[in-house]
Simulated scan of single mutants.
Amino acid sequence: MVWSKLTVRGIDNDRTIVTHYYCGGETWMTHRMDRSGYEEIIHHTKIGEDTWHITRTHKEIYGTWKINLNCVIYNMPDGSQREVRFDSPT
């Protein structure tokens, strides 16, 4: 596993972003932590040759985790992408 850490300071909202890379960087997880208490996690998983599953969750300070995005992205032969979302309210 390879990982990176970026700390941004000196702005209104300092933050740290840690990313863990797997499978040669084709799959990764990023955790963002802001000084304000906001956190976000992004999972980016390669599930096929041209197919990715992406989930994004976040929480405000003292809040609960909420889903921002849960989708599958398909890279199309013409260079475009098709997105199928699974995060609509029931």
Rank of each mutant, 00 (worst) to 15 (best):
R15P: 00
V2P: 01
V8M: 15
Y21P: 01
S80D: 12
D12N: 13
Y22W: 10
H31S: 14
G25Y: 03
R15H: 12
K59H: 08
T19I: 06
T16Q: 12
N68F: 03
E40S: 12
L6N: 13
M29T: 11
S36A: 15
H53G: 05
G25F: 09
C23H: 11
D12E: 09
K46V: 02
G25H: 13
M1G: 15
K59M: 05
W28Q: 07
E83A: 07
M1Q: 14
W65A: 11
E26T: 15
N68G: 13
I17G: 01
G63T: 05
F86K: 08
H44E: 08
W28I: 00
G79A: 12
R9A: 13
G25K: 09
N68C: 11
I73Y: 01
I61V: 06
V18W: 00
I11Y: 04
Q81G: 04
D78I: 02
V2S: 14
E40Q: 13
G10Y: 02
T55Q: 11
K46P: 00
G48S: 11
D87P: 00
T30D: 05
H43M: 08
G37K: 06
G24E: 06
E40L: 06
R15Y: 08
T16C: 09
R85H: 09
G24I: 02
H43C: 08
D12W: 05
D14T: 08
W3A: 14
M1R: 09
I17C: 03
H44P: 00
Y21L: 10
I11R: 10
P89S: 13
H31R: 10
V2L: 14
D50I: 03
V84C: 06
K5C: 09
E39D: 05
E49S: 13
N68K: 15
T57L: 10
C23Q: 12
S4D: 11
G25N: 10
D78A: 09
K66L: 14
D78N: 12
K59L: 03
M76N: 13
Q81V: 12
S88C: 07
H44M: 06
K5P: 01
P89E: 12
V18G: 00
T57A: 10
V8D: 12
S4M: 12
K59W: 01
W28M: 14
Q81L: 05
I61P: 03
T45C: 11
R56S: 13
